[in-house]
Write a protein that binds this DNA or RNA. Structure first.
Lengths: 206, 206
DNA sequence: CCGCTGGTGACAGTTACTGTCATATGGCAT
DNA sequence: ATGCCATATGACAGTAACTGTCACCAGCGG
């Protein structure tokens, strides 16, 4: 029920028609550029479509709504994070695995601190984007819970696994957002690791 | 920067013109009834306005967007939760205070389990509502962090307090949602308390 | 009684989205 | 190659969520 799927049924000739994937990326990039330049509200679907030279109607065959562009903008980060996490040895403690996955998959993309700040600023003051963004994060809890369930007991819908997944998701989001809001810390990765470290201790004193 | 404020500047004659508050509630109730009856998309602003006998234009003087109706629907619960939490003795451990506040303020409203299930179902399959709902929850972290900061050290923007606030928010949401999705547990309050209890132990093994 | 302030309604206009149908495009079998 | 078919695309029309603006209608302070 998610974002990146090549096609639902037939393997789809594969070769030629992955121009689709390219167009999708072009759209997301063009949209991002326009949003940064003149803001979300001041950018119309027509503008975005024109930038990629497709009809406005076709835009909606790539993205269900304008807001969904924001998930495309964070798409690759998310995918590589999951890939990195699943590549970690199953015996490894979850804390370490998660922290390592952040370092491997997310931190490199955060080298461009100005880029991260711009993105977080865009999300911060574009209500529609922020809503869609956190909704996506909330939904991803289920994906993450499934991965976690794969390394411990087997219930991806168990309350504890959902809580762990939720806490990790929330911690990463909070740390990055907090870092972007205050201009203090060196780089987001440090802040995120600190947040994850907190999860190894009880959040509420017993 | 939030939801329920009587007015920004002058005390506003107070007495007479708090019919405004009534109209707001009427709108939220009428909208809820229509949403449950025929669904979110099938309900237009014109329908809602007509049900309260105001002009569609006036609707937007009460709610900025259609989606914002969802926060009005959960409004009172949220307010009473914060009130209950702030009423707890400051010396009390946070875990206890939060669990007590849930029992006092939220659990009573959850007696009507069918109502809760309907509401969660509406949120579950109305994307616009779900997004706005979790956005609201995410934003409320700051409110909660401020309350928490008031009982311990004093930094409402400190990473640890934000994380605690986020974890509590997330735990409550996850538990209710999880309860509504699976038809197993007796009542949501039990499930929520169980989730909160998990926060007293490390979520990630050290 | 007059003017002022703030809520309201009536338009008109923009834009996000959707259904539908005709056309184009690229892969495949013959 | 040629013709066929599935799928992508574009053009068009229509709905509904918003927004700006203005004119109107309280109530109430002078």
């Amino acid at each position: 029920m998610h974002t990146l799927e090549k096609s639902s049924k037939a393997p789809l000739p594969g070769l030629a028609a992955k121009k689709k994937q390219r167009t999708r990326i072009l759209l997301a990039e063009a949209a991002a550029a326009l949003f940064y330049e003149r803001g979300y509200d001041a950018t119309t679907i027509d503008d975005i479509a024109a930038a990629v030279e497709i009809s406005p109607r076709t835009f909606y065959r790539y993205f269900p709504t304008k807001e969904d562009l924001v998930v495309a903008m964070g798409q690759t980060s998310l995918e590589s994070f999951f890939a990195a996490l699943e590549a970690r040895p199953p015996a490894e403690p979850l804390t370490i695995a998660v922290q390592a996955a952040v370092d491997e998959a997310l931190a490199p993309g955060w080298e461009d601190t100005d880029g991260v700040r711009s993105f977080m600023a865009l999300i911060r003051d574009t209500s529609a984007f922020r809503a869609r963004w956190v909704e996506e994060a909330f939904d991803n809890r289920y994906l993450l819970a499934a991965v976690i369930a794969g390394r411990t007991d087997g219930d991806p819908l168990g309350l504890r696994n959902l809580l762990i997944a939720g806490a990790i998701t929330m911690a990463i989001n909070t740390a990055v957002q907090s870092w972007a809001d205050q201009d203090i810390e060196p780089r987001p990765a440090v802040y995120v690791q600190r947040a994850l470290a907190e999860l190894s201790m009880p959040l509420l004193a017993p």
